[in-house]
Design a protein around this nucleic acid. Structure first.
Lengths: 136, 136
DNA sequence: ACCAGTAGTCTCAAAAAGAGACCAGCGCTA
DNA sequence: TAGCGCTGGTCTCTTTTTGAGACTACTGGT
């Protein structure tokens, strides 16, 4: 882990040198992370990693997403190359969304994070409770 | 990876059964992920993984964050137990932010995702360009 | 003839984020 | 000694994002 932190430190130094400033606002990684990092994106990627879904199926699977945000988030995921959109010319045309190879590749580390969340949500819940108690 | 997807599938089934519905809106993992998943949270965690920083240092390091969002995001990270806030009673009191053990633990999978972004940002950029060209 | 399901779009209201002024207290300097 | 800047914030106002829900067009079933 120390090695990783050292790598990060070097990267920050490199970015500082590259941008001739003292920041890493223009970091290309930020750009990519933002795309994964929306409110609904990880959830939809998780769902589509299981199997392809149609629009309405996703809407039912994630009932607290609005149609508007579902459309928009899928559009962004498609634009970034994580999701493939396939239209079936049935009478009411249906649309199937699935992960691309890039999406499946991104899912691997995303899933690591989800597993961490799964293992540690008790700790986070306790930290929140302790913090809120201390405030009150 | 197939094993992981299968695990995910099982989890979705379990959630469906647990919530007696056809969704996983009440998934506790979502709650944890949301905390990590803000616009600025991953960036600040990355910075603090390098070394502790003071408020003003973070502000200079990430120049496109507003003071308001910096305060708020650090507050949330502290509440969720990722970040420790230490006040030094110097003349103008200074405040040092550092990762807790929980924060360092969470940083491990987060860093995996960042590394993925680093390796694949070219692919994402290309996907975006291709998509935008197809639209135009 | 009417209702449900297909995948969306459009509009309007609510919530979140960004920009920038303001605060108190101290050290430095002109 | 009067101003200036640095410390870490908060407060207010504006802009952007999100959410809620109506509306579209087409078809199959009752």
């Amino acid at each position: 882990m120390d090695g990783k932190v050292l790598n990060l430190k070097s990267k920050i130094e490199i970015y500082k040198a590259m941008t001739d400033g003292a920041n890493f606002a223009d970091c290309p990684v930020r750009d990519v992370i933002q795309g994964i990092n929306g409110k609904w994106s990880p959830l939809l990627v998780m769902a589509l990693a299981e199997k392809p879904y149609r629009f309405g199926e996703l809407r039912r699977l994630v009932p607290d997403i609005s149609q508007r945000m579902l459309t928009q988030t899928l559009h962004e995921l498609q634009r970034d190359g994580y999701v493939h959109r396939k239209v079936f010319p049935t009478k009411p045309p249906s649309v199937e969304y699935s992960l691309t190879d890039l999406g499946r590749s991104m899912f691997v580390p995303l899933y690591q994070l989800v597993q961490w969340a799964e293992r540690n949500h008790d700790a986070v819940r306790e930290a929140r409770a302790a913090f809120d108690d201390a405030q009150a």
